[in-house]
Design a protein around this nucleic acid. Structure first.
Lengths: 133, 133
DNA sequence: TACAAACCTATTAGAATAATATGTTTATGA
DNA sequence: TCATAAACATATTATTCTAATAGGTTTGTA
């Protein structure tokens, strides 16, 4: 299940998408609007910066800003940036070591099929779809 | 992500499906074949019994047996029986209290769509599909 | 140069996971 | 009939994850 970390990341990105994209929005404003602890938001937004989804500007008048146009942010990328796993089982994670039971595993085909389904679903929806209101 | 609990439950059910369905199979045999700790298996199989997916017979000569034909066991039901959540977010769980942000939530439609997708997927595959080898 | 903002590091309470350990009860079959 | 094999029951544990909180440092601007 997607935890609050992933859900907050989405709300954060949607909030940013609805601001004037020329300006930098302070985290304080976002957390106030969303009613989420600023300190916890910091942890989440840090990961979005690290993954080059948004840009942070320090100092007075600073804040955060989107880098791309909203249609170029797949939901899946946002979720994965903050550490949410889209794979249904651990053996399908990129960092997983090869499983020696794979050749006899009766369920691997099912998991792979669902993995593709999830991936296609969450990469087929973008921030533009969510923030169009 | 589906944890070992859910994956072991599936392996357990597939193992049972491949045994003679007239006889009772001791957990000891299953755990030996699957290479999984018998004691941990006990915890899992207890939940399958509680949810009426299998039947346990005590005493010498006892063990566990399927109740239905393999095509009548959707994978989703097996996973849910051992506590795996198919819903992508907690607010879509049956026991979730109504969310006051739902009317303004820009993501709820997406989660609901994915929830249906997952449900349809895992209830569209049965034990018969997995154990046909 | 004061201030506002991003950025950094550490700590914590609570819950879940994946087990292990030690029994008790029940029914069979030798 | 009674030892035995099996399900069933309850408790404990180490580890990891989650969702925060706390306090500090750096940077840029008005």
């Amino acid at each position: 299940m997607i935890s609050t970390r992933g859900r907050y990341a989405l709300r954060l990105m949607i909030d940013l998408a609805m601001q004037d994209t020329d300006k930098y929005t302070p985290l304080k404003d976002i957390s106030k609007r969303q009613g989420i602890s600023e300190k916890y938001m910091e942890i989440i937004i840090k990961q979005l910066v690290k993954h080059k989804l948004i840009h942070g500007l320090r100092g007075k008048g600073g804040g955060y800003r989107l880098i791309r146009s909203t249609a170029d942010y797949p939901v899946g990328e946002i979720l994965e940036a903050v550490g949410e796993q889209l794979a249904p089982v651990s053996c399908l994670l990129p960092e997983a070591e090869p499983c020696d039971r794979e050749s006899v595993c009766p369920t691997i085909a099912m998991w792979k099929k669902f993995d593709k389904l999830s991936h296609d679903f969450f990469y087929g929806i973008t921030l533009a779809d969510l923030a169009e209101t």
